[in-house]
């Protein structure tokens, strides 16, 4: 199955036009493909140019070079009205919409379709209700936007983008300022929309774990090097992540998918019950050890269950522990 490229860029240069015709290029020669039916996460440290790229794709600032094709048609061929039917955005911009209801907020997404006075037709109302349902915010339709939590507000803005009925949705840090459950809810929602409605979704985020977990495709943006694009797993196993973070003195451990200032080196063998050994491994990493296969001549831990941890020291001494806390204090002493 070949997937349709909703956005395709060739040799795209992004940045700012300064006074006197000078240019400040943020990123050069970007060849990107945003695919329909997938969630793509744009990752990058502050200053990497994520926002500039998103603003360029949103049409808020002109590209400095190269070309952007939306749904196979060059961006320059889009009028503002066509564009608003093609790309829906969710931004971090502060709104003044506290005094209208969620329903009214979502109905603003119908603006490109309604007439001069913005009168909603029966069909518009049906689409607004579908969008409210799809974003899981229908139960709050009659509430004021100011009464929503941050997570609910994000869902309402996503519902607005859905009501716009665009094949492409771009989101600028939709999970920033959200608590853990809302973050996951938002990402699950976006993923469902991509799969069920075939939307091409691009979002920028700082949330590495969530991006690896939920992103169908990742774009790793960094100044002065080409964008690394691919599924999270391919990027991790090909080492793209490691080189991406190494510059800043941060280590990405492909074995665990976690970031740290240094990778733990001293190995500790872990085996046994899957769940227990996963979390024992977690505790080991935190305390500076590297979980690895069981081997002679090193500390080995056999996990029989959450309350049955057998520690075998290299000297041959064995000890049975009841909790991970006991294990932590034991290996902490040995250090």
């Amino acid at each position: 199955m070949t997937k349709v490229a909703a956005i395709e860029t060739k040799g795209l240069g992004i940045g700012y036009l300064l006074k006197g015709g000078r240019r400040k290029v943020v990123h050069d020669d970007l060849n990107l493909r945003l695919v329909s039916g997938e969630v793509t996460c744009l990752l990058g440290l502050n200053g990497a140019g994520k926002s500039t790229l998103l603003r360029t794709l949103c049409g808020f600032q002109p590209p400095l070079g190269g070309e952007i094709r939306l749904m196979g048609k060059p961006l320059s061929g889009y009028s503002q009205a066509d564009f608003s039917l093609t790309v829906g955005v969710v931004l971090t911009e502060k709104t003044n919409a506290g005094g209208i209801t969620v329903y009214e907020l979502v109905s603003l997404g119908r603006h490109p379709y309604t007439g001069f006075f913005g009168q909603l037709k029966k069909q518009d109302r049906a689409i607004i209700e579908q969008s409210l349902d799809a974003a899981g915010i229908a139960h709050k339709a009659g509430h004021y936007v100011s009464e929503l939590s941050d997570g609910e507000r994000q869902k309402a803005m996503i519902a607005k983008a859905l009501a716009q009925q665009c094949p492409i949705i771009l989101l600028d840090e939709p999970t920033a300022f959200l608590d853990v459950t809302s973050r996951i809810e938002t990402m699950v929602l976006l993923h469902r929309l991509a799969v069920e409605q075939g939307k091409a979704i691009l979002l920028s985020t700082h949330d590495l774990d969530l991006a690896i977990q939920m992103g169908d495709c990742l774009w790793l943006q960094e100044k002065g090097r080409p964008m690394a694009c691919g599924t999270p797993e391919d990027l991790i196993m090909s080492g793209a992540f490691e080189s991406f973070f190494s510059k800043e003195g941060i280590v990405f451990d492909p074995a665990t998918g976690k970031l740290n200032t240094e990778a733990p080196v001293s190995p500790v063998g872990v085996e046994g019950d899957f769940l227990t050994s996963y979390w024992v491994g977690n505790a080991l990493i935190r305390n500076g050890y590297r979980p690895s296969p069981v081997k002679e001549g090193q500390l080995n831990i056999t996990c029989k269950g959450p309350h049955e941890l057998i520690v075998a020291f290299p000297e041959g001494v064995r000890k049975e522990l009841r909790t991970v806390a006991e294990l932590v204090s034991l290996i902490g002493m040995g250090k």
Partner: peptide, 9 residues
């Protein structure tokens, strides 16, 4: 919604 959202609409 602010000028950017309005422009997108």
């Amino acid at each position: 919604l602010g000028e950017m959202y309005a422009a997108n609409l």
